[in-house]
Measured scan of single mutants.
Amino acid sequence: RRRVRAILPYTKVPDTDEISFLKGDMFIVHNELEDGWMWVTNLRTDEQGLIVEDLVEEVGR
């Protein structure tokens, strides 16, 4: 599965499916959606939700 790492921290918008995360958090990407959004699991918190791909970088497989 594709893995990405947060290059900046992010605080979710209330009442959305987004998740908050810290710089350096690692994610497993489950689905890539329209407009640059991805459905992921945060490996640090085990939380699932939406993040925007502009805030992450690819991690070598």
Rank of each mutant, 00 (worst) to 15 (best):
R2I: 08
G36D: 04
R44S: 07
D46S: 13
E18P: 00
M26I: 12
I19T: 02
I28W: 09
N42A: 05
M26T: 13
E18Q: 15
H30D: 09
E57K: 05
V40S: 02
Y10D: 00
G49E: 03
G60F: 07
V59T: 09
S20A: 04
R5P: 01
T11R: 09
I7E: 04
D35R: 12
K23G: 07
I7N: 06
V59C: 12
R61G: 15
P14C: 09
V29C: 06
E34Q: 15
D17Q: 13
E32F: 11
D25V: 01
G36T: 02
D25I: 00
L22Y: 10
W39Y: 13
R44K: 04
S20E: 04
L50G: 04
D25A: 00
R3K: 13
V29Y: 01
P9L: 03
T16E: 01
M26L: 13
V29T: 01
L33W: 09
R5G: 03
K12F: 00
V40D: 02
A6L: 01
L55F: 14
L33V: 12
V59P: 08
L33Q: 14
P14H: 09
R5K: 15
R2P: 08
L43T: 12
D25N: 00
V59Q: 11
G49V: 00
E58Q: 09
F27E: 01
R1M: 15
E47P: 00
T11F: 08
L8N: 10
D46C: 14
F27S: 03
P14F: 06
G24Q: 04
E34A: 14
R2F: 08
I51C: 05
M38R: 05
W37V: 12
V40A: 14
F27L: 07
P9T: 10
Y10R: 07
L22C: 09
F27N: 03
R5W: 04
R61H: 14
W39R: 12
D54V: 07
V52L: 15
T11D: 14
D15K: 08
S20Y: 01
L22D: 12
M38Y: 08
N31V: 08
R3G: 05
L33K: 15
V29M: 04
E53R: 13
E34V: 10
I7F: 07
P14D: 13
W37P: 03
I19M: 06
D17I: 07
G49A: 01
D17C: 10
G60V: 12
T16V: 01
I7C: 07
R5H: 05
L43Q: 14
L8G: 13
D17E: 13
L43N: 05
